[in-house]
């Protein structure tokens, strides 16, 4: 019974909370800027306001709108599926299902801007592709190594694990992919405001923009939540404590990421993927060495 209550609370929170966390991030950023900053609920005010605005449909944008709805539904489904499968094992291959869903999600995400006939939108989309080819592709590789090393494919099996150096290195790489996927500086090159005028979301307005932002916040939450669970699974072996600890870790991570984003500048589309690739390859190589040395 308590499990049901916890999982429902976590599911509801993981949809509502990301937008509040965005407010927290803005507040932290403001503090680093030496100013007061918006109220913590500001991001929610923004989204509610957007739902009350007129819907201006961009030209030839039916595809974009449909894809966006698909994106939102998949994203919500993904977060619900993750939360539920941590406590109640749904299949033997929960982690694999989540990886697959995430990749589908990413594909939808990068195809939205490409369907909008706006130069900035298309440019933002193609930049997102360049980044995805490194970041999300490496995400799969890293998860592949994780499954290969440990042989686990669902959260239930995490209890069998104990922390080793090579796993920790792999998880560090996973956290970095999470940082990049969350579209923060220096890797926000797709929506780089001064260059591309908000890039991939330039043509959205009103409720559609609201839905997009909401989805984006949930996405940011997910890319931190998932590595946190895998990481904490090494130490915590009861599902309920794991999910609650995972939730709290995500909030802490969000704050750390916010600080990192505030003190860095934006990278460039030809620099970012190469830098990332170097980092990932080094980390993966280290973990392979570690695996064979059994440390």
């Amino acid at each position: 019974m308590i499990e049901h209550i916890v999982v429902s609370i976590i599911v509801v929170l993981s949809i509502i909370f990301p937008t509040i966390l965005d407010g927290v991030e803005r507040k932290i950023k403001a503090r680093i800027h030496s100013r007061i900053g918006p109220p913590i609920l500001q991001s929610w005010y923004d989204i509610i306001k957007l739902f009350g605005k007129e819907q201006v449909m961009p030209r030839n944008s039916l595809h974009a709108v449909m894809l966006l709805i698909l994106l939102t539904i998949t994203q919500v489904f993904l977060i619900v599926y993750t939360s539920v499968s941590i406590i109640f094992q749904i299949t033997q291959f929960d982690i694999v299902v989540i990886i697959a869903l995430f990749i589908i999600l990413q594909t939808i995400f990068i195809s939205i801007p490409l369907t909008i006939p706006n130069t900035f939108s298309v440019l933002g989309g193609s930049r997102e592709i360049a980044l995805t080819l490194v970041n999300e592709a490496l995400f799969i590789v890293i998860m592949g190594f994780f499954i290969y090393y440990t042989g686990i494919t669902s959260f239930k099996q995490l209890t069998q694990l104990s922390p080793t150096v090579y796993l920790l290195i792999l998880l560090l790489a996973l956290f970095i992919t999470g940082y990049v996927s969350s579209g923060r500086i220096p890797f926000d090159i797709a929506e780089a405001e001064p260059e591309l005028a908000s890039g991939l979301m330039i043509e959205f307005s009103g409720p559609i923009l609201g839905v997009f932002l909401l989805t984006f916040h949930i996405r940011r939450f997910f890319v931190k939540f998932f590595p946190s669970i895998l990481f904490l699974g090494l130490f915590i072996h009861t599902p309920i404590s794991l999910i609650i600890a995972g939730f709290i870790t995500t909030i802490i991570l969000w704050i750390i990421y916010a600080v990192i984003a505030a003190i860095l500048g934006r990278s460039r589309v030809d620099l970012a993927p190469i830098t990332l690739l170097k980092i990932y390859l080094v980390l993966i190589a280290l973990s392979i060495i570690g695996y064979y040395l059994k440390v």
């Binding site: 950023k29 800027h33 030496s34 500086i185 926000d188 001064p194 505030a262 860095l264 500048g265 934006r266």
Partner: peptide, 11 residues
């Protein structure tokens, strides 16, 4: 700001 370093801009 153009380089995405808003903190520098603010300070």
């Amino acid at each position: 700001h153009v380089l995405g370093y808003d903190t520098g801009f603010m300070h």
